[in-house]
């Protein structure tokens, strides 16, 4: 964010601006295309240039997510819970920065932005706890009519493309990313196009929170640039169209493209939901596959 500070002596100091980059495979590359775009604050004032993710960035992000999937999904649920909780810890530590980012991005006053950040952190804590509970809630033993041990357990679907909400740049983002990764999926996230800065700061938190590279990949830029490529990508297993809320035609096109490899699709709501409400377990279970294992019981 472009701000000027004044030193105690009164002499103006030119601040050092941050470069907002993509987050792919644990690294912070500029867009492969070399393009960036202007990000303004809620009042239309210049904030920063953000990387404009391209088709190839989306491709690279999918590759990174796929590469990270076996390791991440293979970790114990306890470990994933700890890591997601660690994200919350690090966010809390950088709370002022997030409050600032949300304030300018969403045009909120500091108090409201603070509440949004608190909710985002609390949501991460809430989802962290789900890592080692969802299996028991969703899975279970099945009493088949025969001498068989039969158990159904949920497993992560794989690589999930997430179109993060356009309006709620942090709470919404956390609310769609956390449930995807806490169960062991890896994610390629298209951030809010107009409000990408909290997402980039969030990426910096991820990079310092023991989240393995590639588990979450964040693309800033326009949804139109990347989402169609993610929707049609044959190595993406599921797509969350939440970020296409309010644009049913675009959402329908993406869903149609997603059908090519039978992606699991979470459809876009008519309008962006109220993220402060109880999220329920829907977003957790959307990106799970139930696996049922049979084994004979005998001497």
């Amino acid at each position: 964010m472009a701000t000027k500070t004044t030193t105690p002596t009164g002499s103006a100091r030119l601040d050092v601006r941050k470069t907002y980059k993509l987050y792919i495979g644990g690294a912070f590359p500029r867009s492969e295309s070399g393009h960036s775009y202007v990000v303004n604050d809620a009042k239309g004032k210049f904030l920063a240039n953000a990387a404009l993710a391209s088709r190839k960035d989306a491709r690279d992000a999918v590759q990174a997510a796929r590469k990270a999937f076996p390791g991440w999904s293979g970790r114990t649920a306890y470990n994933r819970a700890q890591i997601v909780y660690r994200i919350a810890e690090v966010m809390e530590d950088r709370r002022p920065q997030f409050v600032d980012a949300v304030r300018v991005s969403e045009g909120l006053n500091a108090a409201r932005a603070g509440r949004v950040v608190d909710e985002a952190i609390d949501r991460l804590v809430w989802y962290a706890g789900w890592a080692d509970k969802v299996t028991q809630v969703v899975g279970g033993a099945n009493p088949v009519a025969g001498p068989f041990f039969n158990l159904s357990t949920p497993e992560p679907t794989g690589v999930v493309a997430v179109l993060a909400p356009q309006e709620s740049s942090l709470l919404g983002l956390v609310s769609v990313v956390a449930p995807v990764i806490v169960t062991g999926n890896t994610a390629v996230v298209c951030s809010s196009a107009d409000r990408p800065l909290p997402a980039v700061t969030f990426a910096e938190v991820l990079a310092t929170s023991d989240v393995p590279g590639g588990v979450v990949n964040i693309l800033t830029g326009t949804v139109g640039n990347t989402a169609p490529w993610l929707a049609s990508h044959m190595d993406v297993n599921a797509i969350d169209l939440t970020g296409a809320a309010g644009d049913p035609e675009h959402a329908a096109r993406l869903e149609e493209a997603a059908a090519e490899n039978l992606k699991r699709v979470r459809r876009a709501p008519a309008a962006e939901p109220d993220w402060s409400l109880d999220p329920g377990t829907g977003r957790l279970t959307n990106f799970l596959e139930v696996k049922t294992v049979w084994h004979p019981v005998g001497l």
């Binding site: 068989f148 049922t292 294992v293 049979w294």
Partner: peptide, 15 residues
């Protein structure tokens, strides 16, 4: 979605 260990093609309404 279904893994049969030491058996195969078993189906049950509860499964």
């Amino acid at each position: 979605g279904v893994v049969w260990a030491n058996t195969f093609n078993k189906f049950d309404p509860t499964s």
